[in-house]
Simulated scan of single mutants.
Amino acid sequence: MEKREATVTEERLPKRRREEACDSGRPAGEEERQESVIPLLLMKINQQLRASADRNLEEWGLTLSQARVLHVIGEHGGSVAQRELERILEVSHPTVVGLVSRMQKNGFVNISIDTKDHRNKIVSFAEKAYKHKVSLRWQHLDVDDRLLRGMTEEEIRQAEILLRRMYRNVQDWEEGRA
């Protein structure tokens, strides 16, 4: 078998490097923006938070995704329509169905038919969820404290503004508006 030499095609190069290689013809004096490390940092933060949360929740038999479901239910007074869960969590119908089915099987939630609209299901706290609700709330606050440690109120406010803007930009991009 003939061994092929690895070649880097122009399409596989990052845009910035393609432009350098092709002499993009930028106007004189226009500075090139450095490649941002923000996406990498956001990904690393997300991975660390997920891993830490999953380790802490394991003792209760929950995952981070399931804890998010319980958080939303709690924010809605103990019960919420399954479709509303999909909307708030921004996940697909099959994902929510799988999550709440496992949670029902493990005794964290009850699922019932909406009496006003029989096409909808209502997801509500089961007794086991009430036992962990306070602990989950304290864990959520602990994550906030650790994540925001050393930041001033102004830095926290600015970080939230910038992260919300980035999130909107990603949503626009996904929806073809950017």
Rank of each mutant, 00 (worst) to 15 (best):
H118Q: 09
K133T: 00
I38F: 11
L141Y: 06
E32W: 02
N56P: 00
D114Y: 02
R83L: 09
V8K: 10
R177V: 11
I73D: 02
K116Y: 06
E19V: 04
H132R: 14
A81G: 04
E19D: 13
I156M: 15
A126I: 02
E127G: 00
D172N: 14
E154T: 10
W138A: 05
L57R: 05
R83K: 13
E90A: 15
A67G: 03
N110R: 08
A129L: 03
I113P: 01
E35H: 05
E10M: 14
G107S: 06
D144H: 13
A178N: 15
L136G: 03
F125T: 04
P27A: 10
I45L: 15
E86R: 10
I156T: 15
S92F: 00
L141P: 00
K15A: 12
H71L: 09
N56Y: 03
E154G: 05
L162A: 12
H76A: 12
V72S: 03
E160A: 14
V109A: 01
A51I: 04
A28E: 11
G29A: 04
S36P: 03
A159E: 08
V91G: 06
T152N: 08
A53L: 13
L62T: 05
K128R: 15
R168M: 14
V91K: 12
L42N: 10
K128Q: 08
E58Y: 06
R146C: 11
A81H: 04
A159L: 15
D54T: 07
N46V: 01
G98R: 10
H76Y: 14
V80N: 01
E153S: 13
S135P: 00
V91Y: 08
G77I: 09
G77Y: 07
R50T: 13
L70G: 03
